[in-house]
Design a protein around this nucleic acid. Structure first.
Lengths: 157, 157
DNA sequence: TTTAACGCGGATGACTGATGTCCGCGATTA
DNA sequence: TAATCGCGGACATCAGTCATCCGCGTTAAA
């Protein structure tokens, strides 16, 4: 699992609490991470339609949907891609006793188990929204966190 | 997710249906995969205690436990390691507004969500045993599959 | 007793993907 | 006109996967 997912989720939480477009420069500075590399992941979020970007001088990123309609799964799939982590190489078709062609119409039992587990993983991520995460931050580190964030964002602009 | 997991699971299914120790050579030949590389994964299974190895001339691998007491999760953890796929880099402690030390006693909300999803993934893999997979093979490709496998294994010995 | 088959672990190299940077382009605003 | 910003491609680096080979000790058959 790529580390860019962590950055992207944290950025979405920040965007959900910001009042206007936030440029990648600010997001990177706020999180203490690489600006150029974070830009890649933000562009992936933009291509997936999760965030909207405004170009030009006072540009930046805004959440496209309300925070309670953006799940963590949405972000993970946008950054890490939609393909399954398990890739069946069909080794049942190899060797001296290969499976018949008609038996290979459906995926093999091993692949089915792996894909079911991945579905469970995705279902778990789908249950949590960016709004839930933002509420968790307030509960964890205090109600003053996001006002302070907004002040810092405004002070930089 | 490493491809060696797929090999290891298939090998465990074969071992569950074999009558005696099966050497890595046979397992690799049967699946049409690299012998030397498969040996690495089998050694990982051995270190994890899932299979027992007998050295020497007629050596090979045997399942240590009954097939209905070996879960797919056991195999995955043995081959791919027991660490979580998501690694929190604690970016909440970076930047101009770092989280306080006491707030960082517990993992952050993002990490909690990711770890919960991984737990769901593991729980799903834990529900399926090697015996279940073997039964699935019989259902998918016919009851004659494992007898033919045993014949082939005996014929090579 | 010799030989061949086998498991084990370390060293090694190729390859793939993740990570990270840089540059040029077009858009927008001061 | 200049500065800021998003976008995409090219590029370099690095870690992990994939795969091979070697030497060692073990065991059973010839």
């Amino acid at each position: 699992m790529s580390g860019g997912v962590e950055w992207a989720v944290h950025c979405c939480v920040v965007l959900s609490e910001a009042e206007g477009p936030v440029p990648a420069q600010r997001l990177a500075e706020f999180h203490g991470i690489s600006r150029t590399y974070l830009a890649k992941h933000l562009q992936a979020l933009s291509r997936a339609g999760l965030v909207s970007s405004t170009e030009g001088r006072v540009g930046g990123y805004v959440l496209t949907r309300p925070a309670d309609q953006v799940t963590v799964l949405d972000i993970v799939l946008a950054v890490d891609g939609r393909e399954q982590a398990f890739r069946c190489t069909e080794i049942r078709q190899n060797g001296p006793l290969p499976a018949s062609a008609e038996a290979c119409a459906r995926p093999c039992g091993v692949a089915r188990v792996m894909h079911a587990a991945e579905q469970a993983w995705r279902a778990s991520l789908k249950q949590v929204t960016v709004a839930d995460l933002a509420a968790g931050v307030t509960a964890d580190v205090g109600a003053g966190t996001f006002p302070a964030l907004r002040d810092w964002l405004a002070g930089q602009g």
